[in-house]
Design a protein around this nucleic acid. Structure first.
Lengths: 246, 246
DNA sequence: AGGAATTTGTCCGTATGTATA
DNA sequence: TTATACATACGGACAAATTCC
């Protein structure tokens, strides 16, 4: 335990390497804690720390009395599938119609800052609009998109852009989207929302909040207000750890 | 370590209780591991296990050289943990308490059949109950689980089972769960639900429907009714090395 | 700026309980 | 029933980060 890297982390990475190289096959059992301890000349405690990490990462599943089973040789592969999700989102944007209602500057209050991932007092832009199945068709959702002010000179182009906003901003800033955080809530629509969608004042909403995050921080945060009686959020959890929306 | 509950778990619960009661205030530091060890008469290892859980649950944040800071007095009130793997689902079941209210036979009508993934007219079992943070704690959700009649002789054991139902049934039938389909809806609670949770008749719900599917078909379908004002479904979509060029 | 005290992080050896095969 | 392997638990030790004087 002298140098920078903890012992258990070194072991963890060794094991990850073996898993991705197929030394331990999916469905098989890893060597026991005791065996790994002998091999790496580490105590059982240290081995357990490494295995705990592998469990958290989705590589293995551990069962008392049985052992440590390999469940995925590359759990991060599931991220590839979620990229398809991003592209599905993109497809939705292409196959539907977004009509901008309003664009304005806003100063984040504490609550809004927490929601969109900014700091209280920061100036952001807010673009609101409605997404339609087709021109003159049915409304899918009322959308409020919050964009940091560093994209100020792109806002005009953004309004003209056909396709997903996040796609435009991702290309503009040159940094890939590393992560999308999504929150799903059930709540009554505020008046400003129900009115724009032509619904009763007390209409129920399924609200999706998505934050698109690059290395440089949040590039856009969108509130999507869907009429509750028309919208179900479906997703699949495959046994190989991947989450797929549809 | 003789009885059912591990020592660290008991300590974890005690600390959670204090946190939710405000004995330790948000922003303050918890007693040190050594002090907690003295108080609970447990080794540092055991205290650390409890604190590790509190960290995972979002109660506290730990910093080497500084201590254990309280970051939330009630993290579970505000969200449904993002569940992306079966492992996580299983953990939730282990760390919370399910109380069975009723078990009965039902014949699927057309709508129910579609929801649970069966056929109209089929006989299924329906187990209803409430999931709690802990005995005498807060209710997390009202749950209605539908189970095909081919598991008829296992229903009794199922009611006694601690842990996730799907885990029991998966082991019993011998087929691995290949997929979980989840649907998220926003809707008003039916009376039977709001009453059991002690809420107003018109309470809003965030409803999660999960179908667990093996090669042999659906083994269980569960409706989870969460009080809308207390629950947010959060999920994260990571994309490690997606270089998208075009 | 620097050193001492404090507190968590890492690690060891050992022992016993408990689920699984 | 037995053996195996993971889960929980103890006590001790030193490292590393933070805070305070």
């Amino acid at each position: 335990m002298q140098n920078g890297e903890p012992r258990y982390r070194r072991i963890q990475r060794d094991l990850e390497d073996r898993l991705s190289r197929g030394v331990y096959l999916v469905g098989s059992l890893l060597p026991t804690e005791a065996d790994l301890g002998l091999e790496f000349k580490a105590s059982r405690f240290t081995i357990r720390e490494a295995l705990r990490k592998l469990t958290e990462l989705g590589y293995v599943s551990r069962t008392q009395g049985r052992g440590t089973e390999v469940v995925s040789s590359d759990p991060r592969r599931s991220y590839v599938q979620s990229i398809q999700t991003l592209e599905e989102l993109f497809q939705v944007a292409l196959e539907t119609w977004f009509v901008v209602h309003d664009t304005k500057r806003v100063v984040l209050d504490a609550e809004l800052a927490k929601s969109v991932g900014g700091k209280t007092g920061e100036k952001w832009f807010c673009i609101t609009g409605v997404r339609w199945t087709e021109p003159g068709g049915r409304s899918i959702a009322m959308i409020e998109s919050y964009i940091p002010s560093r994209f100020e000179d792109q806002i005009d182009k953004l309004e003209q852009h056909t396709g997903a906003f996040f796609n435009f901003l991702e290309k503009y800033c040159g940094e890939p989207i590393e992560q999308v955080v999504q929150e799903i809530r059930s709540l009554a629509m505020p008046l400003r929302i129900s009115r724009q969608l032509g619904l009763r004042p007390d209409a129920l909403a399924l609200q999706l909040l998505r934050r698109y995050v690059t290395k440089d921080g949040v590039i856009i945060a969108s509130f999507n207000w869907h009429p509750a009686d028309q919208f179900v959020y479906k997703m699949k959890i495959d046994s190989n750890n991947s989450v797929k929306e549809n």
